[in-house]
Design a protein around this nucleic acid. Structure first.
Length: 424
RNA sequence: GGAGAGGUGGCUGAGUGGUUGAAAGCGGCGGUCUCGAAAACCGUUAUGGGGGCAACUCCAUCCAGGGUUCGAAUCCCUGCUUCUCCGCCA
């Protein structure tokens, strides 16, 4: 969430940046209004508490001296009741502010290009070339059906549509991809973690997924657990309420998990086969770093994700998202898209974001910064996340790009030591 | 699932109603000493929020949320969680 102080001290700037996101900014004045009441109540309550604490000490002394303190006690009873009421008022006010603040997105970085929608995103790099096929390419559904490596119908029988079943060499290929990606990232200094895939509400809140996106999540109502939409959620929460030492940073993790998304309201759009699913696999990258390094780390993380695609020899491009398209928690974001020969378009396979302090504020993830003169200060870390990468759309690109005239799939060189076969 | 015992500062750990925001030890940081280091000694070392130019000061926080009380780390209730024993189980 945004720093309430930034709204208190520089509302004009906050409003201007939200406008770049094409956001409604009326909420800011509403927050200001409630916030001014907050300070009033705090001051009143604090001074009453001060009085209560002082007189309580006096009562203690009187009692020790066996004096009668009943008058003061009666007096303080009234004060105590007032304090209780003020504390209730304060809690209500703070809840009101939070409920407004939870729906305000992160402010975009200044260098992010202005735009209204995905159409205004900017293509940054294109890697590799499109292959020329001297036969009609088959799409991933046709290929996987013929080879019996993916089974969307039976997946739907087991759970519902959008829950794919991988079979035989398809399952092995998926596992090989995951292993390859993890090994690649581990060699670059990311520490592998394997996390819970069900998380509690506090974890979802800390990662800024709830309450804003609650309807997009699968929930276990009985325990108030959520199925994670991305490993970003559990990995960030490894360090919730913790304070890093400065020399520990950056702390970098990679982790494979299943990801679950209800994709509420997206029916009918790009839903066939792997293009949009409710359960998919992803290797996630997370980086906790000092604020001054976060934009440099973002570029490194982008390169780390791209390295996987280069090793797999996948034709991809990097686009920089415009202010109208960056995610709720992000200040700056790149998408990596892979080429689909059958769809004849780019498919989003990764998103790499700098969320700066937007998540760390709510998750209370900080570090001890040493200032000149040896003094220390506790400051919020910046948190970056990146998919490195999601396998489902990557699998579409891989199957299509590596198909033969006969409808077989040539396994990319780097995956063969994991698959132990070179063709499907 | 049953029975029991716990959750206190970076860590270990004392504290069962009134200067305890919290003893002591360890660790960290600064200093004295030293050519340098170790040892020893001295000092310092939580987070959030008010107020003040500042020195400083006030409020809150001893797992979380309620309650009792003039006053709660300490008493009561609920939840979460850890450990031990039993049961069940991949």
């Amino acid at each position: 969430m945004l720093d309430i102080k930034s709204i208190r001290e520089n509302p004009a700037q906050v409003i201007e940046k939200l406008k770049r996101r094409n956001e409604d900014t009326e909420v800011i004045s509403k927050i200001q209004e409630v916030d001014s009441k907050r300070l009033e109540v705090i001051r009143k309550a604090d001074s009453l508490k001060e009085l209560r604490n002082k007189v309580s000490d006096e009562i203690a002394v009187m009692k020790k001296n066996k004096q009668d303190a009943s008058e003061k006690i009666a007096e303080m009873k009234k004060v105590s009741d007032d304090v209780k009421q003020l504390d209730v008022d304060l809690r209500n006010i703070e809840t009101e502010i939070e409920n407004l603040l939870y729906y305000v997105p992160a402010l975009p970085a200044d260098e992010v290009p202005y735009g209204k929608s995905a159409d205004d995103n900017i293509e940054r790099t294109v890697w590799g070339d499109k292959k020329n096929f001297d036969f009609k390419v088959k799409d991933h559904i046709e290929l996987s059906k013929k080879l019996d490596i993916l089974d969307f119908e039976r997946g739907a029988k087991i759970t519902g549509s959008g829950f794919p079943l991988y079979k035989g060499k398809g399952a092995t290929l998926e596992r090989a991809l995951i292993c390859f990606m993890l090994d690649t990232h581990i060699s670059k200094g990311y520490r592998e973690v394997m996390t819970p895939v069900l998380v509690n509400r506090a974890s979802m809140e800390a990662a800024e997924k709830v309450p804003k996106f609650e309807d997009d999540m699968y929930r276990i109502n009985e325990d108030d657990f959520f199925a994670i939409p991305t490993a970003e959620v559990p990995i960030i929460n490894i360090h919730r309420d913790e304070i890093f030492k400065e020399d520990e940073l950056p702390v970098k993790y990679c982790g494979f998990t299943n990801c679950f998304r209800r994709e509420a309201g997206s029916y009918g759009k790009d839903t066939k086969g792997f293009l949009r699913v409710h359960q998919f696999n992803k290797v996630e990258l997370i980086n906790f770093c000092p604020p001054e390094n976060s934009y440099a780390e973002l570029e490194k993380m982008l390169a780390d994700a791209c390295a996987v695609l280069q090793a797999l020899n996948v034709h991809y491009r990097v686009i920089e998202l415009c202010t109208g398209d960056i995610g709720f928690s992000a200040s700056k974001c790149y998408d990596i898209e892979v080429w689909s020969y059958a769809e004849n378009k780019w498919l989003e396979a990764s998103s790499v974001s700098n969320c700066t302090d937007f998540q760390s504020r709510r998750a209370k993830i900080r570090y001890k910064k040493t200032l000149e003169g040896g003094k220390t200060k506790t400051e919020l870390v910046h948190i970056l996340n990146g998919s490195g990468l999601a396998t489902s759309r990557l699998m579409v690109a891989l199957l299509e790009a590596n198909q033969t005239k006969e409808g077989n799939i040539v396994v990319p060189e780097v995956l063969r030591k994991y698959t132990n076969f070179d063709i499907i």
